[in-house]
Structures are given as structure tokens and as C-alpha cells.
């Protein structure tokens, strides 16, 4: 392993260690597990739809918890180091700044992914439980298998979405000196990104001037398209996905996140620490 990779690994490992010992993470994780577990209760009162409800709620909660972790920890990654002045010690070590930024990204990605994986395991556990409580005749009429391996595909897409979100959070935290501002920016861009598909189709709205439509559509293409990763209902209903849909989406996330990390590195390398 090259020294560069080793150092990036050290920074990432440190982010992970700090992360998993942080109470915030426990709070989000516990809340998420509780909600996923409560899907069983909810499923009891919605006759016949229990598997769909467990899947819908489970996937939504996992995504939401991942988003919360990415934002809350992500914006603090650099801001907290500056607040606590530990950045002075760290950056005077033989650690180039770009390695610091990349290490932080990798570390948070690791932290969030481990949590997502944990919650996914919990969801599969519950689905297995539901599977064995059902009669084979009942299972036969469902859209999709109860314990559906395609759910992992949803997880891959959620993972890509979270990687992009982490890159956004990290980007804002590398030049903003206030964690609160970073949160506002990140959440704002995330919400805008969820609506980006509507923005990209803005031209379909009747009676809007072409100039306005053009500008809105351009914004829709430029902002990170967080809505592009949602295949939840598609998978829950057992519908097919177009060929190349998932790989293209992953390529999109990879390209966009790389561009954001490059921008973060550029900004962070020029930053002064008073």
C-alpha cells in the first residue's frame, strides 16, 4: 500500500471511529431501527398489504436515516476540526490537504454504509420473519418475492445517492466556517435535488416563456439529481428496470461526486486557518 493510500485510510478510519462513538449516530440509528421494527405493527392493521408496507416503510426509513447521518456528520467533518483547533495539529503533519479531504469523504461513506448495511440486515430479518408466517398460496399472488434480492439493488442506489449527498455536505463544509450554514446549504440543495426531475421537465408546463423554461431546466440539470436514485416503488411492485438504468445512475453519481470532491480539494487547499 502506498503511503498516500495509508494516510487516506488513517483519516477515514479515524472519521469512522469518531462517528460510531458519537451519540448523534446512535440516536439516528436507534430511531431508524425503531421505525423499521414498527413496520411490523403497522402491517398488522393493514390487512393483506403487510409485505408492501414493511418494504415501503423500511426502505424509506433507511434512506432517511442515511440522509440524516450524511448531513449531520458530513457538515461537521471539517467544521468541528476547525472549531476544536485540532485541524492545526492535523494539517501540520505530513498529510497533504487533498488526502485529508478524500480521507474524510471515504470515512463518512464507510460510516454511513456500515449503518445502512446494518439497517438493511434488520429489514431482511423482518421480511424473513414475514415470509415464514405466510402460506405458500398467499405468497404466490404477491408482485414480488417477500425476501426479494432486488431490494439490494435499491440499497445500491440509496448508497450512491448518499455518496453524492456526502460529497455535497463535505463541499459546503470545506469553505463555510459555520456548521449551521453548511447544514442549511446542504439540506437546501438536497431538497432542490429531490425536485430536480420536476425542474428538468419544466418545459412541459404550458404557457411559460421559453427563456424561463430554459433557465429552470438548466438548473434542473446542474444541481445534483437526488430524485434520480429512487427505484423503490419499482422494486417493491416487482416491475422491471430498463437495461443499463442502474449502471448509468451509478456512473452519474460517481462523476458528480468526483467533481464535487475535486472542487472541495481545490477550495480546501487554498483555505487559511486563523
Amino acid at each position: 500500500m502506498t503511503p498516500t493510500l495509508r494516510r487516506i485510510g488513517l483519516v477515514a478510519w479515524h472519521v469512522f471511529k469518531e462517528g460510531v462513538r458519537d451519540r448523534v449516530l446512535y440516536a439516528i440509528g436507534a430511531f431508524a431501527l425503531l421505525l423499521v421494527a414498527s413496520a411490523i405493527l403497522i402491517a398488522q392493521i393493514t390487512a393483506g398489504q403487510d409485505v408492501k408496507i414493511i418494504k415501503d416503510l423500511g426502505l424509506a426509513v433507511i434512506e432517511l436515516a442515511g440522509v440524516l447521518m450524511a448531513i449531520v456528520i458530513g457538515v461537521g467533518l471539517v467544521a468541528r476540526e476547525i472549531d476544536r483547533r485540532s485541524i492545526f495539529s492535523l494539517l501540520t503533519k505530513p498529510l497533504p490537504r487533498w488526502e485529508f479531504v478524500v480521507g474524510k469523504f471515504a470515512g463518512l461513506l464507510l460510516t454511513v454504509m456500515v449503518n445502512v448495511a446494518g439497517m438493511t440486515a434488520a429489514l431482511f430479518l423482518m421480511l424473513t420473519f414475514a415470509h415464514f408466517r405466510m402460506t405458500p398460496e398467499y405468497r404466490a399472488v404477491l408482485d414480488a418475492p417477500v425476501v426479494d434480492p432486488r431490494l439490494l439493488l435499491v440499497m445500491v442506489m440509496i448508497g450512491a445517492e448518499l455518496a453524492l449527498l456526502i460529497a455535497v455536505a463535505l463541499f459546503f463544509s470545506t469553505f463555510s466556517s459555520s456548521a449551521l450554514l453548511s447544514i442549511v446549504f446542504t439540506v437546501g440543495l438536497y431538497l432542490a435535488g429531490l425536485l430536480s426531475q420536476d425542474l428538468r421537465r419544466f418545459g412541459d408546463i404550458v404557457d411559460v416563456s421559453p427563456a424561463v423554461a430554459w433557465v429552470v431546466q438548466a438548473v434542473g440539470w446542474i444541481i445534483p439529481a437526488f430524485s434520480a436514485f429512487d427505484i423503490k416503488s419499482q422494486v417493491v411492485h416487482g416491475l422491471p428496470l430498463p437495461d443499463g438504468f442502474v449502471p448509468m445512475t451509478l456512473a452519474y453519481a460517481a462523476l458528480y461526486a468526483t467533481a464535487l470532491i475535486a472542487a472541495s480539494v481545490g477550495l480546501f487547499s487554498r483555505r487559511e486557518f486563523k
Binding site: 439529481a225 428496470l241 430498463p242 443499463g244 438504468f245 445512475t249 452519474y252 462523476l255 467533481a259 475535486a262
Partner: peptide, 23 residues
Amino acid sequence: VVAAGIGAAAAVLHARDVDGPLP
């Protein structure tokens, strides 16, 4: 460089949505 990266990403997204849009 950053703008080119984001542009490339948008192009991929566009290609995806033209190629095989999610029904």
C-alpha cells in the same frame, strides 16, 4: 475541470433518461 465533471454527469443522466427512462 469541476464544471466539465458536472457537465459529464448531467450528460450521463440525460443519456440514461433518453435511453431507458423509468416508466
